[in-house]
Simulated assay, not measured.
Amino acid sequence: MHDRDRRLLEAARRGDAAEVRAALDAGASVETRDEELRSPLLLAALSDHVQAARVLVAAGADPDAQDRRHDSPWLVTGVTGSVAMMRVLLPAGPDLTLRYRYGGVSVIPASERGHVAYVRAVLRETDIDVNHVNDLGWTALLEAVILGDGGRAHQEIVELLLAAGARPELADADGVTALEHAERRGFDALAALLKAAA
């Protein structure tokens, strides 16, 4: 790897937007990769370095470039819940159907982790598939119930998903619906929302 590419990767990792621009001006490849196949844009997205990401996107960085773990800049926005990063990446035209290592799209980890603002924004500002089923047989709605804590954030996410067309009757690989999971876990507020949507 050329020194200027190493310089770009390190600058992106640190979030130093001026140094990112300088490395690119010096001839660094915007799609260079580190040992884990992470691109500069992915490194910036992982740590929510929005300004550095903006420079990289302007230079043509690929929002779908996946590393060894199948993470991409776009997909990690669902993990971090960064609405600002999501909006920086949208003009680059990310593939909303791109899947991470468990076969999901970005709204699924965001729903699991309780990232209300991200779920609201990604549903409003993109046409992401709210009923996408991952390799575990789970939709965003199922993940919000199965892996969530039943609290206010997950209640808001369930409301947002239902309003966006999430289908509560879609069951997991074992035939268990989100409502049944909510009832089993004692999540009365979630169960009430799901019953009202049935």
Rank of each mutant, 00 (worst) to 15 (best):
Y100R: 05
V79D: 12
A84K: 13
Y100V: 05
R120N: 03
V76N: 03
R124T: 14
S72G: 05
G93E: 12
W74C: 04
Y100T: 08
E112I: 00
D95C: 02
A58Q: 14
V76L: 06
M86E: 11
M85I: 08
R120P: 00
L75P: 05
W74K: 02
R101H: 12
D67R: 12
D67Y: 11
L56T: 14
R113Q: 13
G114D: 06
P63W: 02
S106P: 13
Y100F: 07
G93W: 03
L98V: 06
G103Y: 07
P91A: 13
P94K: 06
A84N: 12
A110V: 03
P94G: 10
P109D: 14
M85E: 11
Q66N: 01
G81V: 01
R124Y: 03
D95G: 03
A92T: 13
G93C: 03
Y118C: 04
P94R: 10
A59F: 05
A121L: 00
A121I: 02
V122P: 04
V83E: 08
V116H: 01
V105L: 12
A65C: 08
V122M: 05
V105K: 12
G60M: 08
R69Y: 09
Y102P: 00
S106N: 05
A59W: 09
Y102V: 02
A84T: 13
D67G: 10
